[in-house]
Computed example of a mutant assay.
Amino acid sequence: MMSDHVAKPTNPDGLILEAWGQGFMVGSLLILAAVTVANMRPGVLLHKLILLELILAMAHGTFIFTHEPVYGWYLSVTAIGLNISWALHNVIAWMKNRPFLSRKVSRFYIITVVLCFPYWVLEIYANFTYFNNINKIFLHTRPLEPLFRDPWWVFTSLSLFWTIKREYSFGLWEIIKISPRFGIMLAAMILSIIFIIVDTCSVLNAFKSVLPTGIEPFWKLSFVFKCLCDTVVLDDFKTALDRMRRHWLEKKNGQMFMTPSSTPNPSPRAYRVRRDIESPGAGEWAEFPSVYSPTKQSERVSHREDAQLQGSSTSDGRRGRVSPISGARPGDIPSPDSSVERIQPMREGIPDIPLQRM
């Protein structure tokens, strides 16, 4: 018979599975935090909250290394940061989805998130008393955890899919082609909801589990995919979708790349500009290299000077003139390729009127 004493898992299969789940969560959150720091912009509150969400949850993936009596204390203390991170994730989801919500829906959304805070306080207490063998309140609060944690994220995911279908002119496949990272975010949303369902079935004893109560990997998988959705696209959904629509329209109208006929280089890759549509300033026009760049202009000037020197050494003896065989223009007549600065201004008093033959 199993003892009522709550301790570190001793079943080899359960211990291995729990250790794998914690290692997966910590490693994933660490990589996502590094990606967030590399892409976040200073002064944006949403980006800072995403980074805080990741940092708060990391410590809870290390309690498997401890032993009694530290095990229960360490697990309970690190669970505080995890519960705060879960509540913070719903706030982040509200900030990302708020531009698509009406004022009434937005207020209802954030008010219900705040009303769940007393439950999280109770959950922190129940978690501490359970894993330190004080009482068994956690057996009653744990089945309610998905109800106070996940409905807002499910609503946010469904709202985003519905908004894309209703308000934007491209479908899911076009989104993946335009922005692979947005496609990754949509796939992570679907996977997170799948593992939410599996976790809910697990805590409701829908299928038998070899792990003790409160220790299973399904919520870790769901949480990692939620954080991936926050990190892969840091800005709110409307900003990201508007950039993608602008990018799609520009590409559709043939304005993203210069055609080979309009550039000296016949290769279509010559002046291609690789840019990230989710990056700052991505909606602005790309700065294509000018055909009359300083490098090109200096080459033409040197070529013209060489032609003049060649003309001065011809047999006709006239300075600045070249032989018709050389094909160069007279030195006193400016070339069409010359820059504006090298052309002598017209004398005053002479009108700028083209001469015509009588």
Rank of each mutant, 00 (worst) to 15 (best):
Thr36Ala: 12
Leu221Arg: 01
Ile176Met: 12
Ser312His: 10
Leu309Phe: 13
Val224His: 00
Ile55His: 04
His303Thr: 13
Gln344Gly: 06
Ile31Thr: 12
Thr36Arg: 02
Tyr292Gly: 07
Asn39Gln: 11
Ser28Pro: 02
Ala286Arg: 04
Met256Phe: 11
Arg329Lys: 11
Glu174Gly: 03
His67Ala: 15
Lys104Val: 09
Asp236Thr: 00
Ser338Leu: 12
Gly283Val: 04
Leu82Pro: 00
Asp230Ala: 09
Ser28Ala: 15
Leu56His: 03
Pro12Cys: 09
Asp13Gln: 09
Ile325Lys: 15
Tyr292Arg: 15
Ser261Leu: 15
Arg275Ala: 08
Gln344Ile: 09
Gly281Pro: 02
Cys116Glu: 10
Gly317Tyr: 04
Arg103Asn: 14
Ser222Asn: 08
Val233Leu: 04
Lys8Leu: 14
Ser85Lys: 03
Leu46Cys: 03
Leu204Thr: 12
Leu88Pro: 02
Met58Cys: 13
Asn205Met: 12
Lys177Leu: 06
Pro266His: 07
Leu228Trp: 00
Gly81Asp: 04
Gln297Ala: 10
Leu158Phe: 15
Val70Trp: 15
Asn265Thr: 06
Trp86Lys: 00
Asp316Glu: 13
Gly214Arg: 00
Glu284Ala: 11
Arg342Gly: 07
Gly214Ser: 05
Ser267Lys: 06
Glu145Asn: 08
Arg304Glu: 07
Leu29Cys: 10
Met2Ile: 12
Trp120Leu: 14
Trp20Lys: 11
Leu82Gly: 05
Leu241Val: 02
Pro351Ala: 12
Cys227Arg: 04
Ala34Phe: 14
Ser159Leu: 14
Trp162Pro: 01
Thr163Gln: 11
Pro330Ala: 08
Thr231Tyr: 04
Gly254Lys: 05
Ala7Thr: 15
Glu287Asp: 15
Lys8Asp: 05
Ser339Lys: 09
Arg269Asp: 15
Asp230Leu: 06
Phe170Gln: 03
Ser339Glu: 14
Val113Trp: 00
Asp332Tyr: 13
Ile196Tyr: 05
Asp242Leu: 01
Asn11Ala: 11
Val121Glu: 06
Leu82Ala: 10
Val44Tyr: 09
Asp276Met: 02
Pro336Tyr: 12
Arg300Thr: 09
Thr78Tyr: 04
Pro151Arg: 00
Tyr109Pro: 01
Phe100His: 04
Pro260Tyr: 06
Ala38Met: 09
Leu211Ala: 09
Pro289His: 01
Leu160Arg: 00
Phe161Asp: 02
Val77Ser: 05
Pro180Glu: 02
Glu278Gln: 12
Ser290Gly: 10
Asn133Tyr: 06
Ser202His: 11
Trp86Met: 09
Val37Phe: 13
Ile84Lys: 04
Gly72Gln: 06
Gly317Lys: 07
Lys251Ser: 14
Thr66Tyr: 12
Lys104Ile: 11
Asp235Lys: 01
Ile325Gly: 11
Ile277Pro: 02
Ile55Phe: 13
Thr112Cys: 13
Tyr125Thr: 07
Leu309Gln: 15
Ser179Gln: 03
Tyr292Pro: 03
Gly14Glu: 07
Arg98His: 01
Asp4Ala: 14
Tyr130Lys: 01
Val70Ala: 15
Ile325Cys: 13
Arg142Asn: 12
Ser338His: 07
Arg181Tyr: 08
Ser312Thr: 08
